[in-house]
């Protein structure tokens, strides 16, 4: 009898619907390209961060005119730029800076967007109305231009300030998405049941509704991360991103603004452009796989 019970229990475990993590693992097992992208991304990011620690930035940024536009070869694997500085080293440092800043912006906008979205969706009414008007306004303004103007008028321009300026404009999409999901979630029975039991609003919002939205939030953050890499490198390319002392991938690409570099010194700007493209492709592909696993209708696995 006891044995039978055990067996039944075991079967129950097997037939329970897969949890969030299991679904994601299954999806990645099914989609080999996504799995490959994920592994390649993790390896690349870890390599970049570890490698960057061993690079002496002062040594790297020292100008030596004799090696001006040195071609790729023994001394410089990827050649040198106008000041005779190693491209490969700048590429690693630039990638590290770009990725770190994109992660920071993603986290700040993610936390702001999720908290505001949850509060608006759960409480509705005045708070919801007010934030929705603010978000509507942010969505209709020409963001890129206003970020550029902001960057030029800030007197003491540093990286934290750049991150804050970007975050100020980029939290709205997440907030809007989370709000619409939280709105429908807060009308479910389990929320009503918790309310009847006397659970505090704080606990319901962050302990019950948020875990149910976790898959959507993860997808949104991943895709935002890709978007933020794009925006940061784009702004740095135009010269309104990171300060010149901190090279970004965009800074390296911006050397191509010189027609001579663009037309005949491909090793200066092409590697950085390709790295940006590969990063964006990889992150987006992982994001798409996550999105599929968050939506039962689209799953492959």
């Amino acid at each position: 009898m006891a044995q039978l019970d055990k067996k039944e229990q075991k079967e129950e475990v097997v037939s329970s619907p897969p949890t969030g993590m299991q679904v994601i693992i299954r999806e990645f097992k099914k989609d080999k390209v996504a799995l490959f992208s994920l592994i390649a991304l993790v390896v690349a990011i870890v390599t970049i961060f570890v490698w960057a620690m061993f690079i002496d930035q002062q040594e790297l940024m020292r100008v030596s005119l004799r090696e001006k536009f040195a071609e790729p070869g023994e001394k410089f694997w990827l050649g040198a730029d106008q000041g005779g500085r190693d491209i490969l080293g700048q590429l690693i440092i630039g990638a590290r800076n770009s990725i770190a800043i994109a992660i920071a912006i993603t986290l700040i906008t993610g936390i702001t967007g999720v908290v505001i979205g949850l509060l608006c969706g759960y409480y509705g009414g005045f708070i919801d109305n007010m934030f929705m008007r603010i978000i509507d306004f942010f969505i209709t303004i020409p963001q890129l231009m206003i970020i550029i103007v902001f960057v030029t008028i800030v007197p003491k321009y540093t990286i934290p300030i750049f991150i804050l300026i970007m975050s100020l404009f980029l939290w709205t999409g997440t907030a809007r998405l989370v709000r619409s999901k939280a709105l429908s979630e807060s009308k479910r029975d389990y929320v009503n049941a918790s309310k009847t039991l006397g659970t505090s609003d704080f606990k319901i919002i962050f302990g019950k509704i948020m875990p149910n939205l976790s898959s959507i939030i993860i997808v949104e953050l991943t895709l935002n991360f890709a978007g933020n890499v794009g925006i940061e490198t784009g702004l740095s390319y135009l010269g309104f991103g990171l300060p010149p002392t901190k090279p970004s991938l965009g800074t390296l690409v911006s050397y191509a603004n010189n027609p001579l570099v663009l037309s005949s010194k491909w090793w200066v700007w092409l590697p950085a452009s390709l790295l940006i493209l590969l990063l964006m492709l990889g992150i987006n592909y992982v994001g798409q796989a996550l999105r599929r696993s968050a939506d039962a209708k689209q799953r492959l696995g």
């Binding site: 784009g234 135009l238 191509a256 663009l262 452009s273 493209l277 964006m280 492709l281």
Partner: peptide, 22 residues
């Protein structure tokens, strides 16, 4: 459509300019 979605504007523009222009 996936590649064109992921590629940033300035990267594609530069690559086009380099390849088709120069």
């Amino acid at each position: 459509s996936f590649i064109t979605y992921a590629i940033p504007t300035f990267v594609l523009a530069l690559v086009f300019l380099y390849f088709f222009g120069y």
